[in-house]
Computed example of a mutant assay.
Amino acid sequence: MDIIKVVSFAFIALAVIVTIRKERQDLAIQISLVAGILIFIFMITKISSVLQLLQELAIKANIDFIYLDVVFKILGISYLASFCSEICRDAGESNLASKVEFAGKILILVLAIPILMAVLQSIMKIM
């Protein structure tokens, strides 16, 4: 199972980070960053298969790809903002982490506006 691989790798990285953090804080942060990126790369294949399935479902349901594309972008922004903010927190920069989360929320809002407008137009047509 893939989760066992991810958890095992994370625990090994955690042990190395905790051991090194006492002597070299900067190196521990870099190891944490590399471990996070490796886990993310490992999960990209899983994410791509989910996105492919969603695209197939959208084709069957005759959903416009513009909306699906926006949803994919929103998911990407949320995952990347969360990943980056957690790395910032690991480095002891919770203030910067909060700013990254705020920026992610604003970008998601900006992307969601066209979808909200389309929903409102559909409601207006029904009325």
Results as ranks from 00 to 15, higher is better:
residue 40 F to Q: 08
residue 25 Q to P: 03
residue 60 K to N: 15
residue 28 A to G: 01
residue 97 A to M: 03
residue 100 V to Y: 04
residue 98 S to Y: 12
residue 86 E to Q: 14
residue 77 I to A: 10
residue 114 P to N: 02
residue 10 A to V: 02
residue 70 V to C: 11
residue 88 C to I: 07
residue 42 F to T: 06
residue 12 I to Y: 06
residue 36 G to V: 01
residue 17 I to H: 02
residue 118 A to W: 02
residue 34 V to R: 03
residue 56 E to Q: 15
residue 105 K to C: 05
residue 50 V to Q: 08
residue 64 D to R: 11
residue 115 I to V: 10
residue 24 R to Y: 10
residue 124 M to C: 12
residue 110 V to G: 01
residue 86 E to C: 06
residue 13 A to L: 03
residue 53 L to S: 15
residue 69 D to L: 15
residue 60 K to T: 13
residue 94 S to K: 13
residue 109 L to E: 02
residue 41 I to H: 05
residue 97 A to D: 02
residue 22 K to Q: 07
residue 51 L to Y: 11
residue 75 L to T: 07
residue 118 A to F: 05
residue 38 L to H: 05
residue 113 I to H: 01
residue 117 M to Q: 10
residue 15 A to S: 13
residue 51 L to F: 14
residue 95 N to C: 10
residue 91 A to I: 04
residue 89 R to Q: 12
residue 56 E to I: 10
residue 33 L to D: 04
residue 10 A to P: 00
residue 8 S to N: 08
residue 85 S to Q: 04
residue 90 D to L: 04
residue 113 I to N: 00
residue 102 F to Y: 10
residue 51 L to A: 15
residue 97 A to L: 05
residue 105 K to Y: 05
residue 19 T to E: 12
residue 83 F to V: 00
residue 99 K to D: 11
residue 75 L to G: 10
residue 15 A to P: 00
residue 51 L to D: 08
residue 68 L to P: 00
residue 116 L to E: 02
residue 65 F to T: 12
residue 17 I to P: 00
residue 34 V to I: 14
residue 123 I to Y: 05
residue 63 I to V: 14
residue 102 F to D: 06
residue 31 I to T: 01
residue 96 L to W: 08
residue 103 A to Q: 01
residue 89 R to H: 11
residue 31 I to D: 00
residue 110 V to E: 00
residue 118 A to K: 04
residue 66 I to A: 15
residue 20 I to W: 00
residue 7 V to S: 07
residue 34 V to T: 08
residue 29 I to C: 05
residue 110 V to N: 00
residue 66 I to Y: 13
residue 32 S to V: 02
residue 109 L to T: 05
residue 46 K to W: 12
residue 107 L to C: 07
residue 83 F to E: 02
residue 33 L to T: 10
residue 82 S to F: 14
residue 81 A to D: 04
